[in-house]
């Protein structure tokens, strides 16, 4: 039985779950091969065969949007997992150890925080040479700092808790304290931050792809699809609007989920 206070979350969890389901099983859900070119059927407006029309290579836009969900959402989730884990680990180590380790790691994170996130990511992705992996790496390079800051602050507040002293008196080593006592206790707020961040990361990944620094052709990534169709906004708007709407809906769902999650957990 679901606790009443979690009830407001249900519609958002269902919607987000549906998106993730589509993303994972995308290859089985597409009506056509998203990579199959048919130049003779290029730029066909939406019709009963191609519900969202075809792009300039004659590929089915609906199939590409569905396939794109896998690329965009899975890449964003993987990236989020990486930065959340590394960020929290670094932050909690700093919080626990203090001293020189803390100073070095936190000043390093200050250096990264000194740059606007997107500007840094564009520069890094440009230097790394494009590609979805490099774009994600560029975002990861700067993304961990936020989680390090949050988990450090949280660790500092729980460091003085009686159960921490108890754990130390019972002879638990530093690693044990970190894994069994610190991380589980800071997980809630970190997860809420992560849920709120997912939408932003999807936007940033799509943004880098839009600028030509992310997914490489013919990968059906939403940002890249929008960029490829940009010049056709007036002549074949469906090519741009379909992936644009996909980004809009996905980001809105994950942001709303994050908002509700925070409301519920902060109560």
């Amino acid at each position: 039985m679901i606790k009443p206070r979690y009830k407001p979350l249900i519609p958002y969890v269902v919607a987000a779950g549906a998106l993730i389901f589509v993303a994972i099983f995308a290859p089985f859900l597409t009506p056509y091969d998203p990579y199959l070119q048919d130049l003779e059927g290029a730029l066909t407006p939406p019709n009963s065969q191609n519900l969202l029309g075809t792009d300039r290579y004659g590929r089915d836009v609906l199939s590409r949007v569905i396939m794109g969900s896998q690329v965009t959402i899975c890449a964003a989730l993987a990236l989020l997992a990486v930065i959340t884990l590394t960020g929290s680990l670094i932050g909690s180590i700093c919080g626990l150890k203090g001293g020189r380790v803390d100073t070095i790691l936190m000043r390093t994170s200050d250096v990264f925080l000194a740059f606007p996130q997107m500007v840094f990511a564009i520069a890094a992705a440009g230097a790394l040479g494009g590609g979805l992996f490099n774009a994600a790496l560029a975002l990861a390079l700067i993304g961990w700092t936020k989680y390090a800051r949050i988990s450090r602050a949280l660790t500092l507040t729980i460091r003085k808790m009686p159960y921490m002293d108890a754990a130390k008196m019972a002879g638990t080593n530093s690693l044990g304290v970190l894994i069994h006592h610190v991380l589980p206790n800071i997980a809630g707020p970190v997860l809420v931050t992560a849920a709120l961040d997912l939408g932003t990361i999807i936007m940033e990944l799509a943004g880098l792809s839009f600028l030509g620094l992310g997914a490489m052709p013919p990968t059906p990534e939403w940002g890249a699809m929008m960029n490829n169709g940009r010049s056709m906004l007036q002549t074949a708007s469906w090519v741009v609007l379909a992936p644009g709407a996909a980004i809009f809906i996905t980001v809105a769902i994950f942001n709303l989920l994050g908002d509700k999650l925070r409301d519920v957990l902060d109560r």
């Binding site: 990579y35 070119q37 590609g131 052709p217």
Partner: peptide, 21 residues
């Protein structure tokens, strides 16, 4: 992209790196 699709027809896999770098 059109070369990539054409070459797939003869079984050649093309990995595109389109970068201004």
């Amino acid at each position: 992209e059109s070369a990539q699709a054409s070459l797939k027809k003869i079984g050649v896999k093309l990995n595109i790196n389109a970068t201004d770098n």
